[in-house]
Design a protein around this nucleic acid. Structure first.
Lengths: 110, 110
DNA sequence: AAAATACTTAAGTTTTTACTTGACAAATAA
DNA sequence: TTATTTGTCAAGTAAAAACTTAAGTATTTT
């Protein structure tokens, strides 16, 4: 039951609805921090903190040129998460294939 | 930028590493609450609270017979999450197809 | 040079979340 | 019947997360 530190960060980052909304906004294309902040009812500083979480998780990449920091989605960022989902699914399905649902329950639940 | 309440609960539920570990344990097959709790270094009550979050999000289903509550994974539970990931991906990829990455940045970042 | 823009940083506050404790109830076992 | 198992509930505590405020820095603009 060990886990990679990064998948922890990814799931944690997207557990917050504001950060998910930010990812949705960023899907429109790369944009500055202040542009990112526009639709949100909170201070710039708060938005920046959310962006940091997203960046540390590898979901977002940023680059500062001049006084403007441009944010973009890191397309491979969700790979680990998708893999986790696939893994869960394949394990259940293997189980369900091997035995009938009820039979399995009786067998392993004693 | 509206969102379904359920996807919120799913992402939030899996944002916690303990609950993710519980899903992994439950992948082994249906089991009782106390069996679920075994590997975790916390009280039964805490585990039950995590299970409630998982159940409210639709990821887990439980049924009580006698004094034993049996928990099982709800296989469709992760569908909404996977769909969200797919949606993000398809939007980025459509963007990257339409325009070159750098060109797009210059265009929309002014 | 002065003012405005676009962040950045640190510190503090508020809110939420995770977890514990302890008392209790129902079902099963002795 | 008594004891044990299996879980439930409510309340409280402690830690983490989200958010604000305020002061500061570097870059443009005027």
């Amino acid at each position: 039951m060990k886990k990679k530190p990064n998948i922890d960060r990814i799931f944690r980052a997207l557990g917050d609805p504001t950060r998910r909304a930010m990812m949705e906004k960023l899907s429109q294309g790369p944009m500055s921090v202040s542009r990112m902040a526009e639709p949100f009812d909170m201070t710039l500083a708060a938005v920046v903190q959310h962006l940091q979480v997203l960046e540390e998780s590898g979901l977002v990449q940023t680059e500062k040129v001049g006084r403007v920091r441009t944010c973009r989605i890191e397309p491979s960022g969700l790979d680990a998460m998708e893999q986790w989902i696939r893994d869960r699914r394949s394990i259940w399905e293997r189980r369900l294939d091997r035995l009938g649902d009820l039979l399995a329950e009786q067998d392993e639940n004693r």
